[in-house]
Amino acid sequence: MDADENARHAEKMAKIKAARDRMMQGKTGEKGLVIVHTGKGKGKSSSGFGMILRAIAHDMPCAVVQFIKGGWDTGERRLLTGHFGDLCQFHAMGEGFTWETQDRARDIAAARAGWDKARDLIRDPAIRMVLLDEINIALRYDYLDIGEVVAFLRDEKPPMTHVVLTGRNAKPELIELADLVTEMEAVKHPFRDGIKAQPGVEF
């Protein structure tokens, strides 16, 4: 890169920095966010657990409620309960995917128990972030009432508590309420080529 190119690059970056600095001057507020990770692509729960690890790194007490995976021996469960149990509560409330249980009443009872636990954790002023992993699946099948969930998050969530909700097919009412919504897009997945779910990647 010659001197003229370097100068042009430096000038361009200086303009970008000045614009960013002006934009950031108005971004001084803080609040507890309602965050939704949805879509058909992989990474919804992974992103939620990444946020939990960030919270732990900042010494922020946090909690996880899993609505579907239940007794699965997952890497995230091993890590959080084995190494960070003092900062992160972990509650696996589900009993497996709906096509495995094939028992609607049982699925509804498990979802209800998960939501009861989630409300207690969210109300706890000491807990700064709560991950509701795969709750969107429970909402999609109407195991939980979306109106009740939205009303609770809107009216009862402490102002500085972050709540992360994951799973496909997030309901429009939840998307409307949320402060941050990310939709994971499926571009390519090894499952289509006969590759099963693998430790360290899917669980």
Rank of each mutant, 00 (worst) to 15 (best):
M13K: 13
P158A: 03
S45H: 00
V34C: 09
D73T: 10
G82W: 03
I68Q: 04
R112L: 12
H58M: 10
F203H: 10
R112H: 14
A63I: 05
K117R: 15
D155Y: 01
G96C: 07
K27S: 06
K117T: 14
K15D: 14
P172W: 00
R106M: 15
G29N: 12
P199L: 06
K117D: 10
L33Q: 13
L174E: 00
G41R: 03
F90K: 03
G39C: 04
K40W: 05
Q89Y: 05
E95A: 15
L80S: 05
E183L: 03
C62G: 00
V130N: 06
A186S: 08
G32E: 07
S46A: 15
P158S: 07
R106K: 15
G96P: 06
G147Q: 07
K44I: 02
F203M: 11
W99M: 14
P159W: 09
T182D: 07
T98E: 13
I195H: 00
A19I: 05
F90C: 10
A7H: 11
A14C: 02
V36I: 13
R54Q: 07
A57C: 07
R140T: 11
A111S: 15
V150M: 00
H189C: 08
K44N: 06
G147D: 10
I35Q: 11
F191Q: 04
G114P: 10
E183N: 01
D155H: 07
I127W: 05
G194I: 08
L121W: 04
M23I: 10
H9V: 15
G43L: 00
N136F: 01
L87M: 12
I127M: 09
V36W: 01
A7R: 15
P158C: 05
V181L: 08
P125I: 06
A111M: 07
D193M: 08
E185I: 13
L79A: 11
L174F: 03
Q25K: 13
M51T: 08
K17F: 12
A118V: 09
T38Q: 02
D155K: 07
I16L: 15
E148A: 11
Q25I: 04
E176L: 05
A109M: 11
A126Q: 13
